[in-house]
Simulated assay, not measured.
Amino acid sequence: MTFSVYVLYSPSHNKIYIGYTSDLEKRLLSHNQLATKGYTLRYRPWILIHKEVFNTKFEAMKREKELKSGKGR
Results as ranks from 00 to 15, higher is better:
Leu28Lys: 02
Thr40Tyr: 00
Tyr39Ala: 08
Glu52Ile: 03
Lys51Ser: 10
Gly72Ser: 10
Gly38Arg: 01
Val7Asn: 05
Ser12Tyr: 03
Gln33Leu: 15
Ile49Met: 05
Thr21Asp: 02
Val5Met: 13
Val7Ser: 08
Gly38Lys: 06
Lys62Asn: 12
Ser12Asp: 07
Ile16Asn: 09
Lys62Ser: 12
Glu59Asn: 11
Asn14Ile: 09
Arg42Pro: 00
Leu29Phe: 07
Val7Ala: 05
Met1Thr: 10
Ile18Cys: 14
Leu34Lys: 13
His13Gln: 13
Thr36Cys: 12
Leu28Phe: 05
Thr2Gln: 14
Glu64Trp: 07
His13Thr: 13
Tyr20Asn: 12
Lys51His: 12
Ser30Tyr: 15
Pro45Cys: 04
Leu29Trp: 11
Ala35Ser: 15
Lys57Asn: 07
Tyr17Trp: 08
Ser10Gly: 10
Gly38Ile: 03
Lys62Cys: 10
Leu48Ile: 08
Leu29Ala: 08
Lys51Thr: 12
Arg73His: 07
Lys57Ser: 04
Gly38Phe: 02
Phe58Ala: 06
Asn14His: 13
Ser4His: 12
Lys37Trp: 13
Tyr6Trp: 02
Met61Leu: 14
Pro11Ala: 06
Phe54Tyr: 08
Leu48Pro: 04
Leu24Trp: 04
Leu48Gln: 14
Asp23Asn: 14
Val5Ser: 04
Gly38Trp: 10
